[in-house]
Design a protein around this nucleic acid. Structure first.
Length: 433
RNA sequence: GGAGAGGUGGCAGAGUGGUCGAAUGCACUGGUUUGCUAAACCGGCGUAGGGGGUAUUCCUUCUACCGGGGGUUCGAAUCCCCCCCUCUCCGCCA
């Protein structure tokens, strides 16, 4: 959620920065108009409430003196005040609602270092690691590899749950599990994150807190309890562990010495991908359920961007250790996610696809999420402040799986397992079938 | 699912219609005293928002908030209704 005080003070800058995000700058003016209306009503209603409080005190005093007549007269008078207050309160609630409905749909503003542009064409490649691997044979795509080695049973996955759902089998299931374990150990033991294992469904408030709702309600799987339609819309399958974990301190006031907090979590991620039909093809690049290890940080605002760089490196380490070629993009203002003030995407090379796949998105949301979820910390100097909340994939597994098997396939049909994964898989090769 | 108990400030815990934003204790914090530490004593110490003071961070004033929402009343932490959550016991269950 944007800071209304900032918008009041710097409306021109706010208009310009909102436009960079592909939103109409006019929404700032709409918001300011609603804000002004709301404040006008608040001033009025609070003055009346003060009057009523004073009158009530007088009545109490009169009653105490036994002066019933005067007390009754005063009561009648004050009753009218109450009616006016009720009427104004109704207006105030309407004004608040209109204001909130608008501000909740506005995306975060981009940090000054973010390339300005309308879409992905303005993204900047800031780093490339390694080279595209050379093959002395024609590398296969992951679908062929999975079929040949029995890693994924695409047909049965579809039979069980519909298109976009995967059934990992044999070595495939073991490799998936090994990678999860490896990723968690890496971030816990090498990068100092605290592991958490969150619920895979969250209440709507959590989705609102991270900025998924109200805008992307259509991308979520809503859960219903049995046949009780009343419960529909209470809980949602998480689209990322960010939804539960970033909300860990919702409504809390932390102390400054609690910060920074580093969390990592494994979870499956459920995405309806509404509107992506037709883009989805056979394979595991765009699916409705995939595994991911997510990184979350809650930090002091002045540390936000240093922590972002560190988190990016944490995610890159995964790809480096697994011997994969990748590049890092600084996303443009028009391509970033709703809640982000700055985002790096990591794209890993998949030789069988002949293209880069996004496996990680690392963002600083600054105080955008913190304000929505009311996570604050008490500063040593006094006063409550909003922390920066960061999130990053560390990393998304289905696509990592693709890049890994396509990169490390051998001519004989086997797959070489990178050294750090070997203890987890208890093998150095997935043998040719 | 059934029965009961309960949700008050960072924590513990009073408060059953007005003088209660809320006793008291603990924690925290400023100070005095003290050779150091400790103790004792004095003071401060919730959150959000509106107005004013050239001021987001200081001062001042007002308003709201005692799980959430509605109601009664001149006035609600306190009375009434609905909902949520927690705990205990029973049942069911991985």
């Amino acid at each position: 959620m944007l800071d209304i005080k900032y918008i009041r003070q710097e409306p021109d800058a706010a208009r310009e920065r909102l436009a960079q995000r592909g939103e109409e700058a006019g929404k700032i003016d709409e918001l300011l108009a609603l804000d002004e209306k709301r404040r006008g009503i608040v001033t009025e209603v609070e003055a009346l409430q003060a009057d009523r409080n004073a009158a009530s005190k007088e009545i109490g005093a009169l009653m105490g003196q036994g002066n019933k007549e005067e007390a009754e007269a005063k009561k009648a008078e004050t009753r009218e005040l109450g009616d006016r207050i009720d009427a104004l309160n109704t207006q105030k609630n309407e004004a608040d609602e209109a204001f909130n409905n608008l501000i909740l749909t506005l995306p975060n503003l981009a940090h000054a270092s973010v390339p300005v542009g309308p879409d992905e064409s303005a993204n900047e490649e800031i780093k490339v690691h390694g080279d595209k691997p050379a093959f002395d044979f024609e590398p296969k795509g992951h679908v062929d590899l999975c079929d040949a080695l029995g890693l994924i049973d695409f047909e049965r996955g579809t039979k069980l749950s519909g298109s976009g759902f995967l059934l990992y089998t044999g070595w495939g299931a073991r490799l998936e599990r090994a990678m999860i374990q490896y990723l968690l150990d890496l971030h816990v033991h090498e990068h100092d994150y605290t592991e958490v294992s969150p619920p895979f469904m969250v209440q709507a408030e959590c989705m609102e807190g991270v900025g998924q709702f109200p805008k992307f309600l259509d991308q979520a799987y809503a859960v219903q309890e049995g046949l009780d339609g009343e419960t529909l819309g209470k809980r949602y399958l998480i689209p990322t562990a960010e939804a539960p974990v970033a909300n860990l301190h919702r409504g809390e006031i932390l102390s400054e010495t609690d910060l920074p907090k580093y969390y990592c979590a494994y979870s499956p991620c459920f995405r309806a991908e509404a509107g992506a039909a037709g883009v989805a093809t056979r394979g595991m690049i765009r699916v409705h359920q995939f595994d991911k290890v997510e990184l979350i940080k809650v930090v002091k605002p002045e540390d936000g961007y240093d922590e972002l760089e560190k988190m990016l490196i944490n995610a890159e380490t995964v790809l480096q250790q697994l011997g994969l070629h990748y590049r890092v993009l600084a996303l443009s203002s028009g391509d970033m996610g709703f809640a982000a003030a700055k985002t790096y995407d990591i794209e890993v090379w998949a030789p069988g696809q002949g293209s880069y796949l996004e496996v990680s998105s690392v963002s600083n949301t600054e105080d955008f999420q913190a304000r929505r979820m009311k996570t604050r910390f008490k500063a040593e100097q006094g006063g409550n402040q909003l922390p920066h909340i960061l999130n990053g994939s560390g990393v998304a597994l289905a696509r990592l799986f693709v890049a890994l098997i396509e990169t490390h396939q051998r001519n004989d049909g086997s797959i070489k397992i990178p050294e750090p994964l070997q203890p987890y898989l208890r093998a150095d090769t997935i043998p040719a079938a």
